[in-house]
Nucleic acid binder design. Structure first.
Length: 421
RNA sequence: GGAGAGGUGGCUGAGUGGUCUAAAGCGGUUGAUUCGAAAUCAACUGAGUGCUUCAACAGUACUCCGUGGGUUCAAAUCCCACCCUCUCCGCCA
C-alpha cells in the first residue's frame, strides 16, 4: 500500500505506475475523495476538541456542586452535529483506504522500460537429444509416477496424484531445498497453511485477488496461495530492532490457487495446478540493504538449479509482468526441452515497504530512534512441481528412464533411475 | 462444543462514568558522580492521522486500553456481538 500523501505529492509518478503496469484507476476521483476526507477529519477534530474542553468544565462544575445543565444542553447539540460528521468521515476513510489497497506498488528505477522482460544472465548448457523428447506428462504417465485420472476422480481438474518414485522425488526435492537454504543462513519455518483475512490482506492477496484464492467460508480462513503469506505475517504489527535485520526465513507449504480462467497447452500437466508444493524464501531488510539482499536471495534460489544441473536464465520483469505488491522482480526460468523454451520456476521480488505498510512491520533505527517500515523480499526456492517437470524432461533417456540428479540420491535411499517397476 | 477467569504502553501492573494529563514499578536512552564500572541521583521514554504552503526527529489538535457496534453531554470504565489467551470438562489424530 502506498500512502495517500505520497500519491497526492507524486501524481505524475502515480499515473506512470498505472500506465506501465497496464492498470486503470480513477486518480482524479481519488484526489477529490482525499480532499473531502481531510476536510472532514479537520471538522471532526475541531468539534471533538470543543467537546473535550466542555467535558472538563462539566466535570469540574459538578465537583464544585454546581449545576451544569446549560453546558450539557449546549453539548447535546454539538454531539448530534458530530455524529453526522463522524459517520461521513468513516465512509470517506473507508473508501479512501479501499482505493489505496487496490493501488499497486511503485516501480523501482531498475524495472525495464517497455513491455518485454530483459535477460539478466544465463547458466548451463542446453541439453541435446538424439531422439524425440517426450513431455513430462507422457513421461510421468508412462513411468506410472503421475496419475491425473485418479486425481480428477477424487478431486477434480487441476490436481495430480504422485505415486511411488514420483512422490519420493517430490519429497526429496522439498528436503533438499530446505536443507540447502538452511546452510545459506535461513531459519526454517513450518507455518499454518491457512491464514485469516488480516494476514491475507497484509501481503496483498486481498482484496484485489479474492478470485484467485480458496476461502473456508465458515471460519473466514484462506488456503495459502504461497508460504509468503504466513512467512511475511510472522512479524505483522511488530517493531523490530535494526540490529536483528536482515531476517531470513525459508518455509515449505503446499500452495492453493484457483487459477480462474487459465487453460492452454503451455500449462498442461503439472505446470499449473490448483495445488502445488513450494519452498519459499522471505527476508525482512532495511531500505539501505534490501536490493543487495534481493540479489543474494535470487542467487540462493538459483543455487538449487545449479546443484541439480538444470539450465536456466534470469529475467528482469517489466512493468506489465511485475507482481502487484513488488517494486522490482526477477523470474528464474528453467529450460523445458519439450516446449523448447524457458519456463518460470521462481519469482524473486522486493516489495520494499508496500507489504510492511499494509501489515505494519517496522524497525527502530539505532541512531535517532525513530521507526521506519522494513522492506520485505520473497522468492520461490523453488516451485517443486515445476522442478519435477524439469528433471523428468531434461534427464530423460531414449528408453524412457529418467536419471535422478546426484544431489537428490541421498534423499531417495540411493536410487539412481526413475523407471517403470 | 460447554463452564469459568482474563486481554491496559517494550514488560509487570493500578485504574468501575467527568475534576489529574492511563498511577507506580521494571526495562531503555541521556546526563551527573567515577580512573572506569556497579550502585545512586536527575531528565527523557509508544504508535497513527490531520493541520501549520512542502517535508521534518518542530509546533498543535485528534485518535489508539483485544476488535467492532451501542448507551451518554462525556466511556479503559456501562451494554451487545465477535476474536484471542489461560484453567477445567467433553470430543478427537
Amino acid at each position: 500500500m502506498l500512502s495517500a500523501r505520497w500519491i497526492r505529492n507524486n501524481l505524475d509518478e502515480a499515473k506512470e505506475i498505472l500506465e506501465r503496469r497496464g492498470l486503470q484507476l480513477d486518480l482524479d476521483k481519488f484526489l477529490s475523495l482525499d480532499d473531502e476526507r481531510r476536510d472532514f477529519i479537520q471538522k471532526c477534530d475541531e468539534l471533538k476538541h470543543k467537546q473535550n474542553l466542555y467535558s472538563k468544565k462539566i466535570g469540574k462544575s459538578r465537583g464544585e456542586a454546581k449545576d451544569p445543565q446549560n453546558l450539557i444542553k449546549e453539548m447535546q447539540g454539538v454531539s448530534a452535529e458530530m455524529a453526522r460528521y463522524e459517520s461521513k468521515r468513516k465512509d470517506l476513510e473507508k473508501e479512501s483506504r479501499n482505493f489505496l489497497l487496490n493501488f499497486p506498488n511503485k516501480l523501482h528505477s531498475g524495472v525495464p522500460r517497455g513491455n518485454k522482460n530483459v535477460e539478466e544472465r544465463r547458466w548451463g548448457k542446453l541439453p541435446q537429444f538424439e531422439f524425440p523428447v517426450k513431455d513430462h506428462q507422457q513421461l510421468g504417465e508412462s513411468l506410472g509416477i503421475l496419475d491425473f485420472k485418479s486425481a480428477a476422480r477424487m478431486t477434480g481438474r487441476g490436481f495430480v496424484v504422485y505415486k511411488g518414485l514420483g512422490a519420493r522425488l517430490e519429497r526429496a526435492l522439498i528436503n533438499f531445498m530446505l536443507d540447502l537454504h538452511i546452510t545459506q543462513g535461513y531459519e526454517e519455518i513450518l507455518p499454518p497453511f491457512m491464514t485469516n483475512a488480516a494476514a491475507t490482506l497484509g501481503t496483498g492477496q486481498l482484496p484485489k485477488f479474492r478470485e484467485e484464492i480458496y476461502k473456508c467460508e465458515r471460519d473466514d480462513y484462506y488456503l495459502v496461495p504461497t508460504a509468503e503469506v504466513p512467512l511475511v505475517n510472522l512479524h505483522r504489527e511488530e517493531i523490530l530492532a535494526e540490529e536483528a535485520l536482515p531476517l531470513s526465513y525459508v518455509g515449505y507449504s503446499p500452495c492453493f490457487r484457483r487459477e480462474a480462467g487459465a487453460y492452454g497447452k503451455k500449462i498442461q500437466g503439472i505446470i499449473r495446478q490448483h495445488q502445488f508444493n513450494k519452498v519459499e524464501l522471505v527476508k525482512f531488510a532495511t531500505p539501505q540493504t534490501s536490493y543487495e539482499e534481493l540479489e543474494k536471495l535470487t542467487l540462493e534460489a538459483e543455487e538449487v538449479l545449479k546443484r541439480l544441473g538444470l539450465s536456466y536464465r534470469v529475467m528482469k520483469l517489466c512493468g506489465e509482468e511485475i507482481g502487484f505488491s513488488a517494486a522490482f522482480g526477477c523470474d528464474i526460468e528453467v529450460w523445458l526441452p519439450s516446449q523448447e523454451r524457458f519456463v518460470e520456476i521462481s519469482t524473486c521480488s522486493n516489495c520494499e515497504d508496500f507489504q510492511a505498510r499494509r501489515a505494519s512491520i517496522k524497525f527502530r533505527d539505532k541512531e535517532n530512534k525513530s521507526t521506519h517500515y522494513v522492506h520485505t523480499l520473497n522468492g520461490s526456492g523453488l516451485a517443486i512441481g515445476r522442478t519435477v517437470v524439469a528433471i523428468l524432461e531434461n534427464f530423460q533417456q531414449e528408453n524412457g528412464r529418467v536419471l535422478i540428479p546426484e544431489v537428490l540420491r541421498p534423499y531417495m535411499q540411493g536410487e539412481k533411475w526413475i523407471e517403470k517397476s
